[in-house]
């Protein structure tokens, strides 16, 4: 932390966020669970293994095509717990509301949270509401935390990727980030992009209960697939090579990225997972994902080796190879 003020980059999920986590937060809160740096903490309590995770939602705008801040907040925490290999059970909801926020909008958001919880099969069991003076918060912020139970046979972690693993992505990239961005900026495109926000616990459980060996499950949210793969490569000490031609990306999303100079590898997803499984199990796991309503466009996108530990590479459309580094800070639209 060489800079004295918090910058927006500190919230990007990329390198700048990581440096704040490792230089400022981790030393002060050091606990073995936090050190694991997975999507949630895995806790041994009275003979049971529980996954515990929290996330705050400050998305602007709060309503966007395909969803709103409410279902996003439920699905996000459900997914973080599911990526620990757990069956999500209970969710807490903390609301921070700005004075003057329309109750009508709040009702719409709460209703979609209730629907999302029902769909994911979790119960909202505790919560808190605070109101701050006008201008002290932006409409509504939501924090959700959740608890899930990890079945005895499940052993997944970002540190478990092994050479020879296939990397499977459950669907198209960058839908959420591009939807929010184009709604926020009023970019009018002749397209039907919408958020991919969805609960992935059903898909995760189908994979984990299939009898296939599963080493890593992770949802590439903030920071995008590029950042998530870098985290896994570092945690597991392996090289990951992905193939650009295999990456599913919708045409309008790709077009918007081209126009603004964004790399879809670094754009947020809210309803996608990556699974690392031994090559021998890859086809079966792929079929299981494709059978799920949120995994129709799943694809095997890469493989793991021991060549350059900690690095991620991309084989490009034209057969070249390049490094996929971790995102630094927020991607900034280019001039020309």
């Amino acid at each position: 932390m060489t800079q004295e003020k918090v910058l927006l980059d500190h919230g990007s999920g990329g390198k700048v966020s990581h440096s704040m986590f490792s230089d400022l937060i981790l030393p002060l809160f050091s606990s073995p669970e936090l050190l694991q740096q997975d999507d949630g903490a895995v806790l041994d309590i009275a003979g049971a293994r529980l996954a515990f995770s929290t996330d705050s939602y400050v998305v602007d705008p709060i309503f966007f095509p395909g969803g709103n801040i409410g279902d996003l907040a439920v699905n996000g925490t459900v997914n973080d717990i599911a990526m620990c290999g757990a069956v999500p059970k209970f969710i807490s909801v903390g609301l921070i509301l700005e004075e003057g926020f329309p109750v009508e909008d709040l009702k719409i958001i709460l209703e979609s949270m209730a629907r999302a919880a029902q769909k994911a099969g979790v119960r909202i069991v505790t919560g808190d509401t605070k109101v701050v003076p006008r201008g002290k918060a932006d409409k509504i912020f939501i924090n959700t935390s959740g608890i899930g139970v990890i079945p005895p046979h499940v052993q997944v972690s970002g540190a478990n990727a092994e050479p020879g693993d296939a990397v499977i992505l459950s669907g198209t990239l960058a839908d959420h980030g591009i939807t929010v961005l184009s709604t926020r900026e009023g970019l009018k495109f002749d397209s039907d992009i919408q958020t991919d926000s969805a609960p992935l616990n059903g898909m995760a459980q189908a994979i984990l209960n299939s009898g296939c060996r599963v080493h890593v499950l992770r949802d590439p949210t903030r920071g995008g697939l590029g950042t998530t793969l870098n985290e896994i490569a570092a945690q597991s000490g392996v090289e990951i090579l992905i193939d650009e031609a295999c990456l599913p990306i919708r045409g309008p999303v790709r077009g918007t990225c081209e126009l603004l100079g964004f790399d879809p590898l670094y754009i947020a997803n809210e309803g996608k997972l990556v699974a690392f499984v031994p090559q021998a199990d890859a086809q079966k796991v792929l079929e299981i994902i494709q059978d799920n309503e949120y995994g129709k466009e799943a694809a095997v996108i890469g493989r793991v080796s021991r060549k350059s530990p900690g690095k991620v590479f991309l084989k490009t459309f034209i057969g070249g190879t390049r490094l996929v580094d971790m995102l630094t800070g927020e991607q900034l639209p280019r001039i020309c």
Partner: peptide
Amino acid sequence: FGDLIRVPGSGSSLGREKAEGADVRIVY
């Protein structure tokens, strides 16, 4: 335009000034 936000001048950048409370807006 967004590209300029992080570019360091002699002592500061538009991003720093924004964090200090300046009204700096990215336009397309």
